[in-house]
Amino acid sequence: MKLRAYLDFICAAKTLEELWLEHVRQMGDYKFDKLLYGYTRQKTKTSLGDPEDFVILSNHCSEYVEGFVNSGLYFDAPMLHWALENDGPGSWTLVQDQISNGGLSESAQKVLEFNAKHGVTAGYTVSFNSSSDRFKGAISLAACDGLNQDDVEDIWREHGRDITLMNNMAHLKRS
């Protein structure tokens, strides 16, 4: 689906399920086949609020969601911390830079080990601009198995603006 057709679809989507399924398909066309979207309206300086109040959408396997989300690994994820402080797209190269500089905590390293076990090793995170400091949303776009971060950077150079726009529009429709 071309960008304009996708945006028309987003505007006309009647259900969250319809929107999410098409969004997953669209991101898959760009070689991002493992998505994790999260949104809270209860963020404070020290908390994201009650996890029971989070909106979480994912097409990851249940074992991944159980470990990363339900068991709380997300709390130590480097790109989550990045997303809380930034808006827009963030390359996972940021994490590779932290590894090279020895700047990752032991708990963050455990998150990366868990991610690697599930093929979540290359990608981008899009952090959404919010109208309130209490609201925050982001989406993790993990690349297909077999792609590395250099491959992802090539995809992003060519299509990053469209991918960011598609994710922003899907987020706005959802929230």
Rank of each mutant, 00 (worst) to 15 (best):
Asp53Asn: 11
Tyr39Ala: 01
Tyr39Cys: 08
Ser62Phe: 12
Phe54Asp: 05
Phe68Leu: 03
Arg41Tyr: 10
Ser71Tyr: 12
Ala77His: 12
Phe68Arg: 03
Leu94Thr: 08
Ile56Asp: 04
Thr121Lys: 12
Gly137Phe: 07
Leu112Glu: 06
Met79Gly: 06
Ser62Asp: 15
Phe114His: 02
Tyr124Phe: 10
Thr46Lys: 14
Glu66Ser: 11
Phe75Pro: 07
Phe54Pro: 04
Asn70Leu: 14
Thr44Ala: 03
Thr121Met: 06
Glu52Cys: 05
Lys117Ser: 10
Glu106Trp: 03
His60Asn: 12
Lys45Ala: 15
Ala142Met: 08
Ser100Arg: 14
Gln96Arg: 15
His81Glu: 09
Gln42Leu: 10
Gly137Arg: 05
Gly49Lys: 05
Asp76Gln: 15
Val126Trp: 07
Val95Asn: 01
Asn115Tyr: 01
Ala142Leu: 07
Ala138Ile: 00
Pro78Tyr: 01
Asn59Ile: 00
Gln42Gly: 07
Ser105Leu: 08
Lys43Met: 06
Ile139Glu: 03
Ala108Ile: 03
Val55Ala: 10
Leu84Ser: 00
Cys61Gly: 13
Glu52Asp: 10
Trp92Lys: 03
Asp133Trp: 09
Gly49Cys: 01
Ser105His: 05
Asn59Trp: 03
Asp33Ser: 11
Val55Trp: 08
Asp133Tyr: 14
Arg134Ala: 14
Gly119Ile: 04
Leu84Ile: 11
Thr46Trp: 14
Val126Ile: 14
Ala142Ser: 13
Gln109Ser: 10
Thr125His: 03
Trp92Cys: 11
Ala83Ile: 00
Asp50Lys: 08
Met79Ile: 11
Ala77Lys: 03
Ile56Met: 13
Ser100Asp: 12
Ile56Leu: 11
Ala83Phe: 08
Phe114Tyr: 11
Thr121Arg: 10
Ser105Phe: 10
Gly103Arg: 11
Asp97Met: 10
Lys117Asn: 10
Gly88Leu: 05
Ser107His: 02
Thr46His: 15
Val69Phe: 07
Gly119His: 06
Trp92Glu: 09
Ser91Asn: 06
Asn59Gln: 02
His118Gly: 00
Ser140Gln: 10
His60Lys: 09
Phe54Ala: 01
Asp133Val: 13
Val120Lys: 11
Lys43Val: 01
Phe75Val: 15
Val95Thr: 12
Glu85Ala: 14
Thr44Tyr: 01
Glu113Asn: 11
Leu57Asn: 05
Ala122Ser: 12
Gly119Pro: 00
Phe68Ala: 05
Asp133Pro: 13
Met79Thr: 12
Ser105Cys: 01
Leu84Asn: 01
Phe54Gly: 02
Leu35Pro: 06
Val120Ala: 11
Arg41Gly: 12
Trp82Tyr: 04
Glu113Val: 03
Ala122Asn: 01
Arg134Trp: 07
Gly49Ile: 07
Asn129Phe: 13
Cys61Met: 09
Ser107Arg: 13
Ala77Ile: 02
Asn86Leu: 01
Phe75His: 15
Phe128Cys: 05
Asn70Pro: 04
Ser58Gly: 02
Thr121Cys: 12
Gly137Leu: 05
Leu48Asn: 05
Val65Ala: 07
Glu85Val: 10
Ser130Trp: 06
Thr125Met: 05
Leu36Arg: 04
Asp87Trp: 08
Tyr124Ser: 02
Gly103Val: 00
Ala138Gln: 11
